[in-house]
Design a protein around this nucleic acid. Structure first.
Length: 263
DNA sequence: ATGGTCGGTGTCCGA
């Protein structure tokens, strides 16, 4: 089974890329973020035509929004509010094969890395604290959790183009990295991508739109993640970050990340 | 040094 997470930055604008996405990733389950569409207008049929007939949609009027699209049957699904806001940053689906997939879009956090001066950054930190507390309390019958999404934190030094220059840039500050570590520790999650790609190797999943030439400057960050419960670690088969997708037309600023699990 | 570019029931705001 292959699971792909992708921040699409408007699902409707990326619809023509669906065949390329499927060709590149071989995905059976798609976890999308920043769908930027209300539920009534979500392009359900376009995904169904490609076999993704099992769908969990959590849309928002202007921004945010997540969706899980699956070729595999879903037994139970839902969405959840975090930090008392209904901004549609989480959807989950328990597949009939036993995997429980959680799709997250963590708040970006604004520009100033100070929770006193920047309420968006405070919201981001609270969101991460909420996640850690919730997964700590979350005890499913079978521990087959997969957490995927745009977590908006690049935790490792090799997850950013310059560790030193990004230490006070939102997405790579010590407090965010610490809190993301607490989310990971709350369920003893395994970073499924770094399981296959050495932490010594630089790896990014996002490049800003603002660069004149994103590939030449290569100032990327690894913001998109797939984690699995420790029980699933023996079933991990491969992980890929599809960098060429950054040149798809029209591109998202994020690229798809795929993890393959034996099922 | 502090821009630069996307996307959306938009002419600002979030990323």
């Amino acid at each position: 089974m292959r699971l792909t997470t992708w921040n699409v930055n408007s699902v409707r604008l990326r619809l023509d890329l669906l065949p390329a996405l499927i060709e590149a990733t071989g995905a059976d389950v798609l976890c999308l973020q920043e769908t930027k569409v209300v539920d009534d207008a979500f392009p359900r049929a376009a995904f169904a035509e490609h076999g993704f007939v099992h769908q969990v949609i959590a849309g928002h009027k202007n921004h945010h929004g997540v969706a899980i699209l699956s070729r595999l049957p879903i037994a139970e699904s839902g969405t959840r509010d975090w930090c008392g806001k209904s901004d549609r940053r989480h959807a989950w689906a328990r597949l009939e094969n036993g995997l429980e997939i959680h799709d997250f879009y963590v708040p970006a956090g604004g520009d100033i890395p100070d929770p006193e001066a920047n309420e968006k950054f405070a919201h981001k930190l609270d969101f991460l604290r909420d996640m850690a507390a919730w997964f700590k309390a979350h005890k499913p019958r079978k521990a087959q959790l997969v957490l995927a999404g745009d977590l908006n934190v690049a935790p490792l030094e090799t997850d950013v183009w310059s560790h030193k220059q990004l230490l006070d840039v939102v997405s790579h500050t010590p407090i965010e990295v610490e809190l993301l570590g607490k989310v990971m520790g709350s369920y003893s999650f395994v970073d499924a991508v770094r399981h296959f790609i050495s932490p010594e190797q630089r790896l990014y999943s996002w490049w800003s739109y603002r660069a004149v030439d994103w590939a030449a400057s290569d100032r990327g960050r690894r913001l998109d993640h797939v984690w699995v419960a420790p029980e699933l670690k023996p079933r991990l088969k491969s992980a890929h970050v599809f960098k060429p997708a950054r040149d798809w037309k029209p591109p998202s600023d994020h690229v798809p990340v795929t993890v393959e699990l034996e099922c």
